[in-house]
Simulated assay, not measured.
Amino acid sequence: MAQQRVPVWVKVEIRSGKAHTAPPVVAHIAVDTLDARAVGRIVQLIQKVAAGDGSPRTPPSRSRSPLSDRETHVLRLVADGKDTQQIARELSYSERTVKNVLHDVTTRLQLRNRSHAVAYALREGLI
């Protein structure tokens, strides 16, 4: 008796409870297996992660931040009370680049202004 192949396609969507965060993280998993037990194991792992148990951890040096290094540096300087011209001079960027960085952060994270961006970054431990 030949084993039947079991195709499995799973879409996992992880959302944050905060309305102003980035879009959800979506993972697609496709498996074509001869072992029905493997399918059960995949389902168990997904349930554990969804319940908050056994979720894969990334090392601290590679943790995913919604901010790039450039954005982090700019927001730290904004938090220090520096204006666009001072930030541009200190980081050797043009003023336009500083404005673009701040605009990108506020737009992507759905924040209202520089102050909101700094408050968000502080709350989330990003700066």
Score class of each variant (00 low, 15 high):
residue 48 K to I: 00
residue 98 V to P: 00
residue 97 T to I: 04
residue 7 P to W: 11
residue 118 V to L: 09
residue 99 K to S: 13
residue 15 R to H: 10
residue 56 P to E: 13
residue 12 V to T: 06
residue 51 A to G: 10
residue 64 R to V: 15
residue 122 L to G: 02
residue 101 V to I: 15
residue 38 A to Y: 02
residue 88 A to G: 07
residue 42 I to E: 06
residue 44 Q to T: 08
residue 17 G to D: 10
residue 78 V to W: 01
residue 110 Q to S: 15
residue 96 R to Q: 13
residue 29 I to N: 04
residue 82 K to R: 14
residue 126 L to R: 01
residue 58 T to S: 11
residue 4 Q to H: 06
residue 50 A to G: 08
residue 65 S to H: 04
residue 54 G to E: 10
residue 38 A to D: 08
residue 82 K to H: 12
residue 16 S to K: 07
residue 101 V to H: 06
residue 109 L to C: 03
residue 10 V to D: 01
residue 97 T to D: 01
residue 104 D to C: 00
residue 60 P to Q: 12
residue 99 K to P: 00
residue 19 A to W: 08
residue 19 A to M: 10
residue 67 L to R: 02
residue 126 L to C: 01
residue 90 E to V: 01
residue 57 R to Q: 14
residue 83 D to H: 07
residue 113 N to I: 01
residue 31 V to K: 07
residue 105 V to N: 02
residue 77 L to M: 13
residue 50 A to K: 05
residue 122 L to Y: 03
residue 44 Q to D: 14
residue 117 A to E: 00
residue 86 Q to F: 01
residue 35 D to L: 12
residue 4 Q to W: 03
residue 69 D to Q: 11
residue 9 W to S: 14
residue 65 S to Y: 01
residue 106 T to E: 11
residue 97 T to A: 13
residue 67 L to E: 05
residue 61 S to K: 08
residue 69 D to W: 03
residue 61 S to L: 08
residue 22 A to K: 11
residue 74 V to Y: 00
residue 11 K to W: 06
residue 37 R to F: 13
residue 55 S to I: 09
residue 93 Y to T: 00
residue 108 R to F: 11
residue 121 A to C: 04
residue 50 A to C: 00
residue 24 P to R: 08
residue 69 D to I: 06
residue 87 I to M: 02
residue 114 R to L: 01
residue 17 G to W: 02
residue 64 R to K: 14
residue 127 I to P: 02
residue 45 L to F: 06
residue 101 V to L: 05
residue 109 L to K: 02
residue 6 V to Y: 13
residue 46 I to T: 07
residue 15 R to N: 09
residue 109 L to Y: 06
residue 75 L to A: 05
residue 3 Q to F: 09
residue 3 Q to D: 12
residue 106 T to P: 00
residue 61 S to T: 05
residue 17 G to V: 07
residue 118 V to F: 09
residue 101 V to K: 04
residue 9 W to N: 12
residue 24 P to V: 09
residue 119 A to N: 13
residue 27 A to L: 11
residue 20 H to V: 12
residue 118 V to T: 09
residue 31 V to L: 15
residue 4 Q to R: 12
residue 18 K to F: 11
residue 63 S to K: 13
residue 20 H to L: 10
residue 9 W to Y: 14
residue 88 A to F: 06
residue 12 V to S: 06
residue 44 Q to K: 10
residue 13 E to G: 01
residue 55 S to T: 09
residue 1 M to L: 10
residue 42 I to Q: 04
residue 15 R to I: 02
residue 44 Q to R: 13
residue 3 Q to L: 14
residue 57 R to W: 04
residue 10 V to S: 09
residue 58 T to W: 06
residue 68 S to E: 08
residue 120 Y to P: 04
residue 80 D to A: 15
residue 117 A to I: 00
residue 125 G to T: 03
residue 18 K to N: 13
residue 37 R to N: 12
residue 107 T to A: 11
residue 9 W to P: 00
residue 91 L to C: 02
residue 51 A to E: 12
residue 83 D to Q: 08
residue 20 H to A: 13
residue 75 L to T: 01
residue 63 S to N: 07
residue 24 P to H: 08
residue 104 D to N: 14
residue 48 K to W: 07
residue 53 D to N: 07
residue 89 R to Y: 07
residue 55 S to E: 12
residue 4 Q to I: 11
residue 19 A to K: 12
residue 35 D to R: 11
residue 88 A to W: 06
residue 14 I to P: 00
residue 93 Y to C: 02
residue 39 V to R: 14
residue 3 Q to E: 12
residue 98 V to Q: 06
residue 50 A to N: 04
residue 111 L to M: 05
residue 113 N to A: 03
residue 94 S to W: 03
residue 12 V to Y: 10
residue 24 P to M: 10
residue 87 I to R: 03
